[in-house]
Amino acid sequence: MHGPAASGWLLVALCAATGAYCLLRMRSSVEEQRRTAGGEALMGFGMAAMAVPAAAFTPPSWAWPVYAVLFGTAGLHALWAARAGTRHLHHSLGAGAMVYMAVVMTLSPGAGQGHTHGGSGIPLLTGVLLLYFTGYVLVTGVRLVPVAAVAGDPAPGAGEASGWGDRPELARACRLSMGIAMVAMLLTM
């Protein structure tokens, strides 16, 4: 997962900031938003840890299987929650992509040194994941574009929870940044 150091540190900063914001979103008064924010915080911090440049820190060889088990468990939890709403399917797919990357890191030459080499994953699976997350990023980005309000319409968010952690556009921006980070990590596979 490790590329040039500068881009790696930018990816770490993006994912860690997203994870921190998701932790703050867990203070929401809406239970479903808290639960979703917790899974997204785990994903953000996990992606940040996986993106640390190898020159700065070489994880021990046991770290990659631990990541695989951790995100496999998170993926199963999201899949179980998906029976209540399809939004959780995206979370389970994201966790599955993290498991895939951790397994590739475990099995790749130089895994103990924290390096992957291009083509070390399954090209078809990597391509499918890239297509999905690229599409997700584009759709989520379009949803963030402001829409002109029609006269007489209530303001967006009127009558909804008004806490800053409950704002849907901030949650979408959080998901967008993690989607972009996922695309960047998959490109290094």
Rank of each mutant, 00 (worst) to 15 (best):
G44V: 07
A68I: 09
G72A: 03
S92I: 06
A56S: 09
A74D: 06
L70G: 05
M43V: 08
G75M: 05
L42V: 09
F57H: 11
A54S: 14
M50V: 04
P65V: 14
R34M: 07
Q33Y: 10
G39V: 02
L79I: 12
W62H: 08
S92H: 03
A37L: 04
G46H: 02
A54G: 14
P59E: 07
A68C: 11
H90I: 15
W62Y: 12
V52F: 09
R87V: 10
A78N: 05
T86E: 15
M47A: 09
A81Q: 08
L79H: 08
T58R: 15
E40W: 15
W64R: 02
R34S: 02
S92K: 00
A37P: 10
H88R: 05
A56V: 11
A54I: 02
V52P: 00
W80Y: 11
H77I: 10
F45H: 09
G72I: 06
L70V: 13
H77G: 14
Y67S: 07
P59A: 12
H91L: 06
Q33S: 12
A56T: 15
G85S: 15
G75I: 04
A84W: 15
G44P: 01
E40R: 12
G38D: 04
F45M: 11
R35Q: 14
A54F: 01
W80V: 13
G39S: 10
A48K: 02
T86W: 06
L42K: 01
A56Y: 11
G72V: 09
M43N: 02
L89G: 04
P65A: 15
